[in-house]
Amino acid sequence: MSLPRAPALSGIHHVALICSDYARSRAFYVDMLGLEVLAEHHRTARDSWKLDLALPDGSQLELFSFPEPPPRPSRPEAQGLRHLAFRVAALEPVIEHLGRHGVACEPIRVDEYTGRRFTFFADPDDLPLELYEIT
Protein backbone atom coordinates (compact mmCIF):
# COMPACT_ATOMS: atom_id res chain seq x y z
CA MET A 1 0.00 0.00 0.00
CA SER A 2 1.43 3.37 -0.94
CA LEU A 3 0.77 6.61 0.82
CA PRO A 4 -1.11 9.39 -0.96
CA ARG A 5 1.14 11.98 -2.54
CA ALA A 6 1.98 14.80 -0.11
CA PRO A 7 1.14 18.39 -0.99
CA ALA A 8 4.15 20.17 -2.47
CA LEU A 9 6.34 22.20 -0.13
CA SER A 10 7.13 25.57 -1.69
CA GLY A 11 10.30 26.54 0.18
CA ILE A 12 11.73 27.29 3.59
CA HIS A 13 9.86 30.03 5.42
CA HIS A 14 12.24 30.43 8.36
CA VAL A 15 15.00 28.91 10.44
CA ALA A 16 15.00 29.55 14.19
CA LEU A 17 18.17 30.00 16.25
CA ILE A 18 18.57 30.32 20.02
CA CYS A 19 21.45 32.55 21.10
CA SER A 20 23.30 32.89 24.38
CA ASP A 21 23.81 36.68 24.18
CA TYR A 22 20.95 38.43 22.40
CA ALA A 23 22.65 41.79 21.83
CA ARG A 24 25.80 40.16 20.45
CA SER A 25 23.89 37.85 18.11
CA ARG A 26 21.54 40.64 17.02
CA ALA A 27 24.54 42.79 16.05
CA PHE A 28 26.11 39.87 14.18
CA TYR A 29 23.07 39.00 12.07
CA VAL A 30 21.81 42.58 11.53
CA ASP A 31 24.97 44.71 11.40
CA MET A 32 27.52 42.16 10.17
CA LEU A 33 25.43 40.02 7.82
CA GLY A 34 23.00 42.80 6.88
CA LEU A 35 19.72 40.98 7.49
CA GLU A 36 16.64 43.21 7.64
CA VAL A 37 14.70 43.46 10.90
CA LEU A 38 11.03 42.63 10.32
CA ALA A 39 9.90 42.55 13.95
CA GLU A 40 11.40 42.49 17.42
CA HIS A 41 9.54 41.56 20.59
CA HIS A 42 10.48 41.06 24.22
CA ARG A 43 8.34 38.37 25.81
CA THR A 44 8.34 39.40 29.47
CA ALA A 45 6.67 36.23 30.77
CA ARG A 46 9.48 34.13 29.27
CA ASP A 47 12.27 36.72 29.72
CA SER A 48 12.94 36.13 26.06
CA TRP A 49 13.56 38.13 22.89
CA LYS A 50 12.25 37.15 19.45
CA LEU A 51 13.75 38.85 16.42
CA ASP A 52 12.39 38.20 12.92
CA LEU A 53 14.95 38.83 10.17
CA ALA A 54 14.45 38.82 6.40
CA LEU A 55 16.74 37.54 3.67
CA PRO A 56 16.45 38.98 0.16
CA ASP A 57 14.73 35.84 -1.20
CA GLY A 58 11.84 36.19 1.26
CA SER A 59 12.98 33.52 3.70
CA GLN A 60 13.43 34.48 7.34
CA LEU A 61 15.67 33.84 10.30
CA GLU A 62 14.15 33.91 13.79
CA LEU A 63 16.55 34.75 16.58
CA PHE A 64 15.48 33.81 20.12
CA SER A 65 17.02 34.36 23.52
CA PHE A 66 16.14 32.37 26.61
CA PRO A 67 17.66 32.53 30.10
CA GLU A 68 20.65 30.17 30.27
CA PRO A 69 20.07 27.95 27.22
CA PRO A 70 22.24 24.82 27.21
CA PRO A 71 25.07 24.85 24.68
CA ARG A 72 24.62 22.93 21.44
CA PRO A 73 27.00 20.01 21.03
CA SER A 74 28.56 20.50 17.62
CA ARG A 75 31.89 18.75 17.34
CA PRO A 76 32.01 15.92 16.63
CA GLU A 77 28.94 16.57 14.56
CA ALA A 78 25.80 16.08 16.63
CA GLN A 79 22.47 14.73 15.47
CA GLY A 80 20.11 17.43 14.25
CA LEU A 81 20.59 20.54 12.15
CA ARG A 82 24.12 20.37 10.75
CA HIS A 83 24.52 23.95 9.52
CA LEU A 84 22.72 26.88 7.94
CA ALA A 85 23.87 27.79 4.41
CA PHE A 86 23.47 31.24 2.87
CA ARG A 87 23.42 31.59 -0.92
CA VAL A 88 25.82 34.27 -2.22
CA ALA A 89 26.71 35.48 -5.72
CA ALA A 90 30.45 35.57 -4.95
CA LEU A 91 32.37 34.24 -1.95
CA GLU A 92 35.34 36.60 -1.82
CA PRO A 93 33.52 39.88 -1.05
CA VAL A 94 31.62 38.25 1.82
CA ILE A 95 34.73 36.51 3.17
CA GLU A 96 36.65 39.82 3.05
CA HIS A 97 33.80 41.65 4.81
CA LEU A 98 33.66 39.03 7.57
CA GLY A 99 37.45 39.07 7.92
CA ARG A 100 37.49 42.85 8.37
CA HIS A 101 35.16 42.29 11.33
CA GLY A 102 37.22 39.53 12.92
CA VAL A 103 35.17 36.58 11.65
CA ALA A 104 37.36 33.81 10.26
CA CYS A 105 36.23 31.65 7.37
CA GLU A 106 37.59 28.22 6.56
CA PRO A 107 39.50 27.78 3.30
CA ILE A 108 37.25 27.74 0.24
CA ARG A 109 36.27 24.25 -0.86
CA VAL A 110 34.53 22.89 -3.94
CA ASP A 111 31.45 20.70 -3.67
CA GLU A 112 32.50 17.42 -5.25
CA TYR A 113 29.03 16.81 -6.66
CA THR A 114 27.97 20.26 -7.91
CA GLY A 115 31.33 21.90 -8.56
CA ARG A 116 30.19 24.96 -6.58
CA ARG A 117 32.46 26.76 -4.14
CA PHE A 118 31.67 27.14 -0.43
CA THR A 119 33.16 27.96 2.94
CA PHE A 120 32.16 27.78 6.59
CA PHE A 121 32.29 30.29 9.43
CA ALA A 122 30.64 30.53 12.85
CA ASP A 123 28.18 32.87 14.51
CA PRO A 124 28.84 34.28 18.02
CA ASP A 125 27.57 31.04 19.59
CA ASP A 126 29.82 28.94 17.34
CA LEU A 127 26.86 27.75 15.27
CA PRO A 128 28.13 26.53 11.90
CA LEU A 129 27.19 28.80 8.99
CA GLU A 130 28.02 28.24 5.34
CA LEU A 131 28.41 30.54 2.34
CA TYR A 132 27.44 28.70 -0.85
CA GLU A 133 28.27 30.39 -4.14
CA ILE A 134 25.60 30.41 -6.83
CA THR A 135 26.81 32.52 -9.76
Rank of each mutant, 00 (worst) to 15 (best):
P4N: 03
L9V: 14
L9F: 11
G11V: 02
I12G: 08
H14W: 08
V15P: 09
A16M: 04
I18K: 00
I18S: 08
S20L: 13
R24C: 12
R24E: 12
R24P: 10
A27V: 09
A27S: 14
V30G: 11
L35M: 11
E40P: 13
H42S: 10
A45Y: 11
R46A: 15
D47C: 14
D47L: 13
L53I: 09
L53R: 00
S59P: 03
Q60W: 11
L61N: 01
L61H: 01
P67D: 05
P69W: 00
P70K: 02
R72Y: 14
P73M: 02
S74V: 14
R75M: 05
P76L: 00
E77F: 14
Q79M: 10
L84I: 13
A85L: 01
V88P: 01
V88F: 01
A90M: 09
L91V: 04
E92T: 13
P93H: 03
P93Y: 02
P93T: 01
V94E: 12
I95A: 01
I95D: 11
H97D: 09
L98C: 04
L98M: 06
R100Y: 08
G102D: 04
V103T: 09
A104C: 13
P107A: 02
G115K: 00
G115N: 03
R116M: 02
R117D: 04
F120R: 07
D123M: 02
D125E: 12
L127S: 13
L127M: 12
E130G: 10
E133D: 07
E133M: 02
T135W: 09
T135S: 12
